[in-house]
Amino acid sequence: MLTATPSGELTCTHWPTSDCKIFHTRFDPAHFSLLQFGNAGIDLPPKIATAVPKRQAEFFHGRLCAQAALRDAGVAQGQVGVGAQREPLWPQGIAGSITHHGAMAAAVVLPAARWAGVGMDVETVGSGQQSAALQETIIMPRERLVLAAHDSAMGMDTLLTLAFSAKESFYKGIYGLVGRVLDFDVISLIGIEASTGTLWFEVMEALGGLYQPGYRFQVAFAAEAGQVMTLFRRAA
Rank of each mutant, 00 (worst) to 15 (best):
T11V: 14
T11I: 00
C12M: 15
C12L: 08
C12I: 13
T13R: 12
H14A: 14
H14W: 02
H14I: 03
T17V: 12
C20D: 15
I22F: 03
I22P: 03
T25E: 08
T25F: 03
R26C: 07
F27R: 02
P29E: 13
A30G: 11
A30Q: 14
H31E: 15
H31T: 15
F32E: 02
F32P: 04
S33T: 14
L35A: 12
Q36D: 11
F37S: 07
N39K: 05
A40E: 14
A40G: 00
D43E: 13
D43L: 14
L44R: 09
P46A: 13
K47F: 14
I48Y: 12
I48C: 07
A51Q: 05
A51P: 04
V52M: 10
V52R: 08
P53C: 04
Q56R: 13
A57F: 01
E58D: 12
E58H: 01
H61P: 00
H61I: 03
G62R: 03
R63K: 15
R63G: 12
C65V: 06
A68D: 04
A68M: 09
L70I: 06
L70M: 10
A73E: 05
V75S: 00
G81T: 10
G81C: 09
V82W: 01
V82G: 00
G83V: 03
G83M: 08
G83N: 11
Q85H: 14
R86V: 08
R86I: 01
E87K: 11
P88H: 06
W90C: 09
W90I: 07
W90D: 02
Q92I: 10
Q92D: 14
G93M: 10
I94S: 01
I94C: 07
I94R: 03
I94M: 06
A95E: 12
G96K: 04
G96R: 06
S97F: 00
S97M: 06
I98G: 06
I98V: 14
T99Q: 12
G102Y: 09
G102R: 05
M104K: 08
A105D: 09
V108W: 05
V108I: 15
V109C: 08
V109Y: 02
A112Y: 05
A112M: 08
A112Q: 15
R114Y: 09
W115K: 02
W115A: 04
A116V: 05
V118T: 12
G119S: 03
M120Q: 04
D121A: 04
V122I: 15
V122L: 09
E123C: 11
V125G: 00
V125I: 14
G126E: 11
S127W: 01
S127R: 09
G128T: 12
G128V: 07
Q129K: 06
S131A: 12
